[in-house]
């Protein structure tokens, strides 16, 4: 794993929160990627020494406060997703790009399904298939993060 500074982690999380707060007009909110989740997953997988389940939990709590949903919902789903992400984190070196994308997609799906269950449990209506759009936009955001901050593992030197 490469060295990362604590500052860049928290700064990027702040920017993610800002993006989450950005006023999405009309239907745009359907396609909005889960900024916080993708950013936290990136740092979890890249620098598990700086970010852990607790960081993910805190990020989820911030999202809850910002979106005005029931407090603790996102925190719960974020921490479970973080747990799954971290349990395979040491094997990431073996993954190629596409496997990594698949892995992240699986994590995003897990979070969405968890969130759906929580929301339905709370008594919200069924949102339909459009609810899963953020997975696709989230993957695009993931690739953007890789471009911006570099890959998860040290590039191979031949």
């Amino acid at each position: 794993m490469r060295r990362t500074s604590r500052v860049s982690v928290y700064l990027s999380l702040l920017v993610a929160l800002l993006c989450q707060l950005f006023p999405w007009v009309g239907q745009g909110v359907i396609y909005r990627p889960d900024f916080m989740l993708v950013v936290i997953l990136y740092w979890l997988l890249r620098a598990p020494n700086l970010c852990n389940v607790g960081t993910a939990w805190f990020a989820g709590l911030l999202v809850d406060l910002a979106t005005g949903s029931l407090l603790g919902q996102h925190a719960l789903s974020f921490s479970i997703t973080a747990f799954i992400a971290l349990s395979y984190q040491r094997r990431l070196v073996l993954f190629n790009t596409w496997q990594l994308v698949g892995y992240v997609a699986a994590l995003l799906i897990v979070e969405r399904v968890l969130m759906l269950l929580l929301k339905l449990f709370e008594g919200n209506e069924n949102p339909g298939l459009t609810y899963f759009w953020p997975i696709i936009t989230g993957l695009l955001l993931w690739q953007l993060l890789i471009l911006l901050f570099g890959g998860l593992t040290r590039p191979k030197t031949n």
Binding site: N52, V53, G54, A56, W57, G60, L61, L71, G72, Q73, A75, L76, S79, I80, A82, F83, L86, S87
Partner: peptide
């Protein structure tokens, strides 16, 4: 990681 997860899940459910 597992124990952390359990702790934070319990915390979020409480909240």
């Amino acid at each position: 990681v597992f124990s952390r997860m359990v702790f934070f899940c319990a915390l979020s459910v409480t909240i």
